[in-house]
Amino acid sequence: MSGLELLIVAGIKVIAAFAFLVLTVLVLVWVERRVVAFMQNRYGPNRAGPGGILQTLADGLKLFFKESMTPRKAQFLLYIAAPVLAVVTALLVFLVIPIGAPVTIGDTTYTLQVTDLNVGVLYILAISSLGVYAVALAGWSSGSKYPLLGSVRSAAQMISYEAALGLALVPVIMFSRTTSLAGIVEAQSGTFGGFLPAWNIVLLPSFVIFLIAGFAETNRAPFDLVEAEQEIVGGYHTEYSGMRFAFFFLAEYINLFNMAALTATFFLGGWNGPVFGPTWLQYLLPVVWFLIKSWAVVFLFIWARGTLPRIRYDQLMAFGWKRLIPVSLVWIMLAMVAIGVRRFGLPWA
Protein backbone atom coordinates (compact mmCIF):
# COMPACT_ATOMS: atom_id res chain seq x y z
CA MET A 1 0.00 0.00 0.00
CA SER A 2 1.19 3.48 -0.78
CA GLY A 3 1.51 6.18 1.86
CA LEU A 4 -1.68 7.97 0.85
CA GLU A 5 -3.66 4.73 0.78
CA LEU A 6 -2.37 3.86 4.25
CA LEU A 7 -3.45 7.26 5.50
CA ILE A 8 -6.95 6.92 4.03
CA VAL A 9 -7.42 3.41 5.40
CA ALA A 10 -6.21 4.51 8.84
CA GLY A 11 -8.56 7.51 8.76
CA ILE A 12 -11.56 5.35 7.85
CA LYS A 13 -10.68 2.84 10.56
CA VAL A 14 -10.33 5.51 13.25
CA ILE A 15 -13.66 7.12 12.33
CA ALA A 16 -15.34 3.70 12.17
CA ALA A 17 -13.93 2.77 15.60
CA PHE A 18 -15.16 6.05 17.06
CA ALA A 19 -18.65 5.60 15.58
CA PHE A 20 -18.74 1.99 16.76
CA LEU A 21 -17.83 2.97 20.33
CA VAL A 22 -20.32 5.83 20.54
CA LEU A 23 -23.12 3.65 19.19
CA THR A 24 -22.11 0.88 21.61
CA VAL A 25 -22.31 3.28 24.53
CA LEU A 26 -25.71 4.48 23.36
CA VAL A 27 -27.03 0.91 23.56
CA LEU A 28 -24.93 -0.06 26.57
CA VAL A 29 -26.34 2.59 28.90
CA TRP A 30 -29.88 1.61 27.97
CA VAL A 31 -29.13 -2.12 28.38
CA GLU A 32 -27.57 -1.53 31.78
CA ARG A 33 -30.52 0.53 33.04
CA ARG A 34 -33.05 -1.97 31.72
CA VAL A 35 -31.25 -5.05 33.03
CA VAL A 36 -30.65 -3.57 36.47
CA ALA A 37 -34.28 -2.44 36.54
CA PHE A 38 -35.53 -5.95 35.80
CA MET A 39 -33.22 -7.37 38.46
CA GLN A 40 -34.73 -4.91 40.94
CA ASN A 41 -38.35 -5.52 39.85
CA ARG A 42 -38.71 -2.19 38.07
CA TYR A 43 -39.35 -1.32 34.42
CA GLY A 44 -36.47 1.04 33.75
CA PRO A 45 -36.55 3.53 30.87
CA ASN A 46 -39.21 2.30 28.43
CA ARG A 47 -40.72 5.45 26.93
CA ALA A 48 -38.31 6.95 24.36
CA GLY A 49 -38.34 4.81 21.24
CA PRO A 50 -39.13 1.07 21.06
CA GLY A 51 -38.51 -0.36 24.52
CA GLY A 52 -36.89 2.91 25.55
CA ILE A 53 -33.79 2.38 23.41
CA LEU A 54 -33.54 6.09 22.54
CA GLN A 55 -33.40 7.10 26.22
CA THR A 56 -29.61 7.54 26.15
CA LEU A 57 -29.86 9.77 23.07
CA ALA A 58 -32.46 11.90 24.84
CA ASP A 59 -30.28 12.13 27.95
CA GLY A 60 -27.28 13.03 25.83
CA LEU A 61 -29.20 15.82 24.09
CA LYS A 62 -30.38 17.12 27.44
CA LEU A 63 -26.82 17.23 28.78
CA PHE A 64 -25.69 18.92 25.55
CA PHE A 65 -28.06 21.84 26.10
CA LYS A 66 -27.39 22.20 29.82
CA GLU A 67 -25.16 24.86 31.25
CA SER A 68 -21.61 23.78 32.05
CA MET A 69 -20.98 25.30 35.45
CA THR A 70 -17.54 26.01 36.88
CA PRO A 71 -16.93 26.20 40.65
CA ARG A 72 -15.30 29.43 41.80
CA LYS A 73 -12.30 27.63 43.31
CA ALA A 74 -11.68 25.42 40.26
CA GLN A 75 -8.32 25.35 38.49
CA PHE A 76 -9.92 26.14 35.16
CA LEU A 77 -7.33 24.76 32.72
CA LEU A 78 -7.12 21.36 34.35
CA TYR A 79 -10.83 21.42 35.13
CA ILE A 80 -11.73 21.45 31.42
CA ALA A 81 -8.79 19.26 30.37
CA ALA A 82 -9.75 16.34 32.63
CA PRO A 83 -12.96 15.24 30.82
CA VAL A 84 -11.19 15.42 27.45
CA LEU A 85 -8.33 13.31 28.77
CA ALA A 86 -10.83 10.77 30.11
CA VAL A 87 -12.51 10.31 26.72
CA VAL A 88 -9.23 10.29 24.77
CA THR A 89 -7.65 7.56 26.89
CA ALA A 90 -10.85 5.50 26.75
CA LEU A 91 -10.95 5.76 22.94
CA LEU A 92 -7.24 5.01 22.54
CA VAL A 93 -7.50 1.61 24.25
CA PHE A 94 -9.95 0.35 21.64
CA LEU A 95 -7.53 1.01 18.76
CA VAL A 96 -5.64 -2.26 19.22
CA ILE A 97 -8.61 -4.59 19.83
CA PRO A 98 -9.32 -6.85 16.83
CA ILE A 99 -13.08 -7.10 16.29
CA GLY A 100 -13.04 -9.58 13.41
CA ALA A 101 -11.01 -11.74 11.07
CA PRO A 102 -8.89 -9.94 8.44
CA VAL A 103 -10.97 -9.04 5.37
CA THR A 104 -9.56 -9.40 1.83
CA ILE A 105 -10.91 -6.93 -0.73
CA GLY A 106 -9.23 -7.20 -4.14
CA ASP A 107 -5.58 -8.03 -3.45
CA THR A 108 -5.31 -6.17 -0.16
CA THR A 109 -6.05 -7.62 3.24
CA TYR A 110 -7.45 -5.26 5.84
CA THR A 111 -7.36 -6.12 9.54
CA LEU A 112 -10.49 -5.31 11.52
CA GLN A 113 -8.58 -3.39 14.15
CA VAL A 114 -7.20 0.09 13.79
CA THR A 115 -3.63 -1.06 14.23
CA ASP A 116 -1.91 -4.22 15.39
CA LEU A 117 0.83 -3.14 17.73
CA ASN A 118 3.64 -5.54 18.47
CA VAL A 119 3.47 -4.34 22.09
CA GLY A 120 -0.35 -4.33 22.19
CA VAL A 121 -0.80 -5.60 25.75
CA LEU A 122 1.75 -3.12 27.13
CA TYR A 123 0.13 -0.34 25.11
CA ILE A 124 -3.21 -1.09 26.77
CA LEU A 125 -1.66 -1.07 30.24
CA ALA A 126 0.14 2.19 29.44
CA ILE A 127 -2.96 3.97 28.18
CA SER A 128 -5.12 2.77 31.04
CA SER A 129 -2.49 4.05 33.49
CA LEU A 130 -2.91 7.46 31.84
CA GLY A 131 -6.65 7.22 32.43
CA VAL A 132 -6.00 7.56 36.17
CA TYR A 133 -4.90 11.16 35.62
CA ALA A 134 -8.26 12.17 34.18
CA VAL A 135 -9.99 11.09 37.38
CA ALA A 136 -7.28 12.40 39.72
CA LEU A 137 -7.09 15.80 38.02
CA ALA A 138 -10.85 16.15 37.75
CA GLY A 139 -11.17 15.63 41.47
CA TRP A 140 -8.36 17.94 42.44
CA SER A 141 -9.08 20.76 39.97
CA SER A 142 -12.72 20.99 41.05
CA GLY A 143 -11.54 22.71 44.21
CA SER A 144 -14.12 20.92 46.33
CA LYS A 145 -13.77 18.31 49.05
CA TYR A 146 -15.91 15.41 47.85
CA PRO A 147 -14.33 15.28 44.39
CA LEU A 148 -10.88 15.41 46.00
CA LEU A 149 -11.74 12.47 48.26
CA GLY A 150 -13.08 10.57 45.26
CA SER A 151 -9.97 11.19 43.22
CA VAL A 152 -7.59 10.21 46.02
CA ARG A 153 -9.56 6.99 46.40
CA SER A 154 -9.46 6.36 42.67
CA ALA A 155 -5.70 6.95 42.43
CA ALA A 156 -5.08 4.43 45.20
CA GLN A 157 -7.58 1.93 43.81
CA MET A 158 -6.37 2.10 40.23
CA ILE A 159 -2.66 1.81 41.13
CA SER A 160 -3.42 -1.21 43.30
CA TYR A 161 -5.55 -3.09 40.82
CA GLU A 162 -3.52 -2.16 37.76
CA ALA A 163 -0.74 -4.29 39.20
CA ALA A 164 -3.08 -7.28 39.50
CA LEU A 165 -4.46 -6.60 36.02
CA GLY A 166 -1.00 -6.64 34.49
CA LEU A 167 0.11 -9.69 36.44
CA ALA A 168 -3.00 -11.63 35.37
CA LEU A 169 -2.00 -11.08 31.74
CA VAL A 170 1.53 -12.44 32.16
CA PRO A 171 0.51 -16.15 31.85
CA VAL A 172 -1.60 -15.27 28.80
CA ILE A 173 1.44 -13.68 27.16
CA MET A 174 3.63 -16.62 28.16
CA PHE A 175 1.27 -19.18 26.61
CA SER A 176 0.51 -17.12 23.50
CA ARG A 177 4.20 -16.18 23.10
CA THR A 178 3.28 -12.72 21.84
CA THR A 179 2.05 -9.37 23.17
CA SER A 180 0.18 -8.45 20.00
CA LEU A 181 -3.59 -8.74 20.41
CA ALA A 182 -4.05 -10.20 16.93
CA GLY A 183 -1.38 -12.77 17.85
CA ILE A 184 -3.14 -13.64 21.11
CA VAL A 185 -6.42 -14.23 19.25
CA GLU A 186 -4.54 -16.26 16.65
CA ALA A 187 -3.01 -18.42 19.41
CA GLN A 188 -6.52 -19.26 20.65
CA SER A 189 -7.75 -20.67 17.33
CA GLY A 190 -8.09 -24.43 17.00
CA THR A 191 -9.42 -26.89 19.56
CA PHE A 192 -8.39 -29.16 22.41
CA GLY A 193 -9.15 -32.77 21.47
CA GLY A 194 -11.27 -31.73 18.48
CA PHE A 195 -14.31 -30.30 20.25
CA LEU A 196 -13.29 -27.87 23.04
CA PRO A 197 -12.27 -24.45 21.72
CA ALA A 198 -8.64 -23.69 22.63
CA TRP A 199 -9.46 -20.50 24.52
CA ASN A 200 -7.26 -19.00 27.19
CA ILE A 201 -10.07 -19.44 29.71
CA VAL A 202 -8.25 -22.65 30.66
CA LEU A 203 -5.92 -20.24 32.48
CA LEU A 204 -8.78 -19.89 34.93
CA PRO A 205 -6.97 -18.10 37.79
CA SER A 206 -5.75 -15.47 35.32
CA PHE A 207 -9.29 -15.04 34.01
CA VAL A 208 -10.76 -14.59 37.48
CA ILE A 209 -8.04 -12.16 38.59
CA PHE A 210 -8.34 -10.17 35.36
CA LEU A 211 -12.10 -9.93 35.73
CA ILE A 212 -11.93 -8.78 39.36
CA ALA A 213 -9.23 -6.25 38.56
CA GLY A 214 -11.33 -5.19 35.58
CA PHE A 215 -14.26 -4.40 37.89
CA ALA A 216 -11.93 -2.24 39.96
CA GLU A 217 -10.29 -0.56 36.96
CA THR A 218 -13.63 0.48 35.52
CA ASN A 219 -14.77 1.73 38.96
CA ARG A 220 -17.85 -0.44 38.92
CA ALA A 221 -19.76 -2.16 41.71
CA PRO A 222 -18.63 -3.77 43.98
CA PHE A 223 -15.57 -1.50 43.65
CA ASP A 224 -17.35 1.78 42.93
CA LEU A 225 -15.92 3.62 45.94
CA VAL A 226 -14.66 6.32 43.61
CA GLU A 227 -18.19 7.58 43.10
CA ALA A 228 -19.95 6.12 46.12
CA GLU A 229 -23.07 8.26 46.22
CA GLN A 230 -23.87 7.64 49.87
CA GLU A 231 -20.42 8.70 51.07
CA ILE A 232 -18.95 11.29 48.73
CA VAL A 233 -21.91 12.53 46.61
CA GLY A 234 -20.67 11.79 43.07
CA GLY A 235 -16.97 11.38 43.59
CA TYR A 236 -14.62 13.02 41.14
CA HIS A 237 -17.36 14.35 38.84
CA THR A 238 -19.52 15.99 41.51
CA GLU A 239 -18.77 19.51 40.26
CA TYR A 240 -19.19 18.73 36.57
CA SER A 241 -22.37 19.40 34.62
CA GLY A 242 -23.55 19.55 31.03
CA MET A 243 -21.28 18.30 28.30
CA ARG A 244 -18.28 18.02 30.64
CA PHE A 245 -20.17 15.52 32.75
CA ALA A 246 -21.36 13.77 29.58
CA PHE A 247 -17.71 13.28 28.60
CA PHE A 248 -16.96 11.47 31.87
CA PHE A 249 -20.10 9.40 31.42
CA LEU A 250 -19.09 8.48 27.87
CA ALA A 251 -15.55 7.61 28.96
CA GLU A 252 -16.84 5.41 31.76
CA TYR A 253 -19.03 3.35 29.47
CA ILE A 254 -16.39 3.13 26.74
CA ASN A 255 -14.03 1.81 29.41
CA LEU A 256 -16.63 -0.74 30.44
CA PHE A 257 -17.02 -1.99 26.88
CA ASN A 258 -13.24 -1.94 26.37
CA MET A 259 -12.74 -4.08 29.45
CA ALA A 260 -15.37 -6.56 28.23
CA ALA A 261 -13.84 -6.64 24.74
CA LEU A 262 -10.39 -7.18 26.25
CA THR A 263 -11.67 -10.03 28.42
CA ALA A 264 -13.19 -11.61 25.32
CA THR A 265 -9.96 -11.10 23.38
CA PHE A 266 -7.58 -12.39 26.03
CA PHE A 267 -9.59 -15.27 27.46
CA LEU A 268 -12.61 -16.12 25.29
CA GLY A 269 -10.88 -16.51 21.95
CA GLY A 270 -11.65 -13.06 20.51
CA TRP A 271 -13.37 -13.40 17.14
CA ASN A 272 -12.68 -17.15 16.91
CA GLY A 273 -15.73 -19.30 16.30
CA PRO A 274 -17.35 -21.58 13.74
CA VAL A 275 -17.42 -19.97 10.28
CA PHE A 276 -19.44 -21.21 7.29
CA GLY A 277 -21.45 -20.08 4.28
CA PRO A 278 -20.63 -17.60 1.50
CA THR A 279 -17.64 -15.24 1.68
CA TRP A 280 -19.53 -12.27 3.10
CA LEU A 281 -20.89 -14.44 5.89
CA GLN A 282 -17.40 -15.74 6.62
CA TYR A 283 -16.27 -12.16 7.17
CA LEU A 284 -19.35 -11.21 9.19
CA LEU A 285 -19.51 -14.20 11.55
CA PRO A 286 -16.22 -13.50 13.42
CA VAL A 287 -17.50 -9.99 14.20
CA VAL A 288 -20.74 -11.53 15.47
CA TRP A 289 -18.82 -13.98 17.68
CA PHE A 290 -16.71 -11.14 19.05
CA LEU A 291 -19.80 -9.05 19.83
CA ILE A 292 -21.62 -11.97 21.47
CA LYS A 293 -18.63 -12.70 23.72
CA SER A 294 -18.09 -9.04 24.60
CA TRP A 295 -21.74 -8.46 25.43
CA ALA A 296 -21.80 -11.62 27.54
CA VAL A 297 -19.00 -10.13 29.64
CA VAL A 298 -20.84 -6.78 29.71
CA PHE A 299 -23.86 -8.62 31.08
CA LEU A 300 -21.65 -10.13 33.77
CA PHE A 301 -20.54 -6.62 34.75
CA ILE A 302 -24.16 -5.43 34.95
CA TRP A 303 -25.18 -8.55 36.82
CA ALA A 304 -22.49 -7.90 39.45
CA ARG A 305 -23.73 -4.34 39.83
CA GLY A 306 -27.27 -5.55 40.38
CA THR A 307 -26.17 -8.19 42.88
CA LEU A 308 -23.16 -7.25 44.98
CA PRO A 309 -22.95 -4.59 47.70
CA ARG A 310 -20.07 -2.16 47.75
CA ILE A 311 -17.07 -3.27 49.81
CA ARG A 312 -15.35 -1.09 52.40
CA TYR A 313 -12.23 0.87 51.51
CA ASP A 314 -9.88 -1.11 53.79
CA GLN A 315 -11.37 -4.34 52.42
CA LEU A 316 -10.64 -3.09 48.92
CA MET A 317 -6.99 -2.39 49.69
CA ALA A 318 -6.47 -5.57 51.70
CA PHE A 319 -8.07 -7.68 48.99
CA GLY A 320 -5.95 -6.11 46.27
CA TRP A 321 -2.56 -6.22 47.96
CA LYS A 322 -2.86 -9.20 50.31
CA ARG A 323 -4.90 -11.59 48.16
CA LEU A 324 -5.03 -10.72 44.47
CA ILE A 325 -1.39 -9.79 43.86
CA PRO A 326 0.17 -12.72 45.84
CA VAL A 327 -2.22 -15.17 44.15
CA SER A 328 -1.33 -13.87 40.71
CA LEU A 329 2.40 -14.07 41.50
CA VAL A 330 2.07 -17.70 42.61
CA TRP A 331 -0.02 -18.44 39.53
CA ILE A 332 2.66 -16.91 37.26
CA MET A 333 5.24 -19.23 38.83
CA LEU A 334 2.98 -22.27 38.34
CA ALA A 335 2.42 -21.27 34.71
CA MET A 336 6.18 -20.95 34.25
CA VAL A 337 6.70 -24.45 35.66
CA ALA A 338 3.99 -25.79 33.32
CA ILE A 339 5.64 -24.18 30.30
CA GLY A 340 9.04 -25.47 31.40
CA VAL A 341 7.73 -29.03 31.76
CA ARG A 342 6.03 -28.83 28.37
CA ARG A 343 9.23 -27.67 26.68
CA PHE A 344 11.95 -29.60 28.48
CA GLY A 345 10.05 -32.51 30.04
CA LEU A 346 9.97 -33.43 33.71
CA PRO A 347 13.22 -32.75 35.59
CA TRP A 348 13.61 -36.39 36.63
CA ALA A 349 12.61 -37.92 33.29
Binding site: L122, L125, A126, I127, S129, L130, V132, Y133, A136, A155, M158, I159, E162
Partner: peptide
Amino acid sequence: VIIYTGAVMTL
Protein backbone atom coordinates in the same frame (compact mmCIF):
# COMPACT_ATOMS: atom_id res chain seq x y z
CA VAL B 1 4.70 5.26 29.86
CA ILE B 2 3.73 2.42 32.21
CA ILE B 3 6.49 3.01 34.75
CA TYR B 4 7.27 6.73 34.67
CA THR B 5 4.11 8.33 33.34
CA GLY B 6 1.85 5.75 34.93
CA ALA B 7 3.19 4.39 38.19
CA VAL B 8 5.79 6.91 39.39
CA MET B 9 3.89 10.07 38.52
CA THR B 10 0.62 8.69 39.86
CA LEU B 11 2.37 8.06 43.16
